[in-house]
């Protein structure tokens, strides 16, 4: 689960819930689905707890088209056109 995105994990959780609700499952399979689901929720909570908004600013001239991101402090200086 370490390298899966929030989106992938959440989708997996919803899929397990769907299969459980459909029913017609053996006891072992239902219990496994539930415990897997609980593990995913734990992982999602860890991700959410740790998250902090990152802000990056596009810098540089259009012609250079570097596409790099830099942290920018202070007043932004606009390019001369």
């Amino acid at each position: 689960m370490a390298d899966q995105t929030f989106e992938e994990l959440y989708a997996a959780l919803e899929e397990k819930a769907r299969r459980l609700e459909q029913g017609n499952l053996g006891l072992e399979e239902s219990l496994k689905l539930y415990s897997d689901g609980a593990a995913i929720v734990d992982a999602l909570r860890v991700i959410l707890e740790a998250a902090e908004l990152q802000v990056k600013t596009l810098q540089g001239r259009l012609e250079a088209d570097v596409g790099g991101l830099r942290e920018v402090e202070g007043e932004y200086q606009f390019d001369e056109d």
């Binding site: 959780l13 919803e14 397990k16 819930a17 459980l20 609700e21 029913g23 499952l25 053996g26 006891l27 239902s30 219990l31 689905l33 539930y34 689901g37 609980a38 929720v41 999602l44 909570r45 959410l48």
Partner: peptide, 21 residues
């Protein structure tokens, strides 16, 4: 809202599992 949604999902799964038991 996400936290609540996850809690609901888990509860639903628990009761479905209990149903199987």
């Amino acid at each position: 809202q996400l936290e609540r949604a996850m809690a609901v999902l888990l509860r639903t799964m628990a009761s479905a599992a209990r149903g199987c038991i």
